Deep mutational scan, measured.
Amino acid sequence: GHYRIRINGREFEIRGISEEEIRHLEEALRNGADEKILKEIVDRLRG
């Protein structure tokens, strides 16, 4: 998958993330885990 997200007015492209991972992120966001989720995304993109 290849997705664009906007955070604090800046747009980011996220590549190589699966539909299942996105559902997991959405679930966590609904549970209020904003900073933790951003850290997970950044860590994943770093490799």
Rank of each mutant, 00 (worst) to 15 (best):
R10F: 15
R44E: 06
N8H: 05
E11T: 05
L45Q: 04
L29V: 13
G16D: 09
K36V: 12
A33C: 09
A28P: 00
I7C: 04
H2A: 09
G32Q: 06
N31P: 03
E20M: 08
R30Q: 11
E40D: 10
R15H: 15
E27P: 01
F12L: 04
N8D: 06
G47P: 10
I37N: 06
E19H: 07
S18P: 06
E26N: 06
E26G: 03
K39D: 05
A33Y: 08
A28E: 06
G9N: 04
L29H: 03
I5M: 01
E11P: 01
E20I: 07
I5P: 02
H24Y: 14
I14L: 13
L29C: 05
I41R: 02
D34I: 15
R44M: 09
L25E: 00
R4Q: 12
K39I: 15
L38G: 01
L25Q: 00
G16T: 05
N31Y: 09
E35L: 11
L25G: 00
G32H: 06
I7S: 00
R6G: 02
H24K: 11
I14C: 05
G1E: 08
A33S: 08
I17H: 02
D34A: 15
I17V: 12
E35C: 13
E21I: 05
I7K: 00
N8V: 01
R44D: 04
E21P: 00
L38A: 03
E11D: 07
I22G: 04
G16R: 02
R46T: 15
R4A: 03
I14W: 02
V42N: 03
E11G: 01
F12R: 00
I22A: 07
R44Y: 10
R23A: 14
V42M: 10
R44G: 08
F12Y: 15
I17K: 02
E13K: 02
S18D: 04
I7Y: 02
L45E: 03
N8M: 06
I41F: 12
E40Y: 04
N31L: 09
S18R: 03
D43F: 01
E20K: 09
R44V: 07
R15N: 09
R23F: 11
H24F: 14
G1R: 05
G16W: 08
V42D: 02
L25I: 14
D34S: 14
I7E: 00
G9F: 01
R44H: 07
H2E: 07
R46K: 13
F12G: 00
R23K: 14
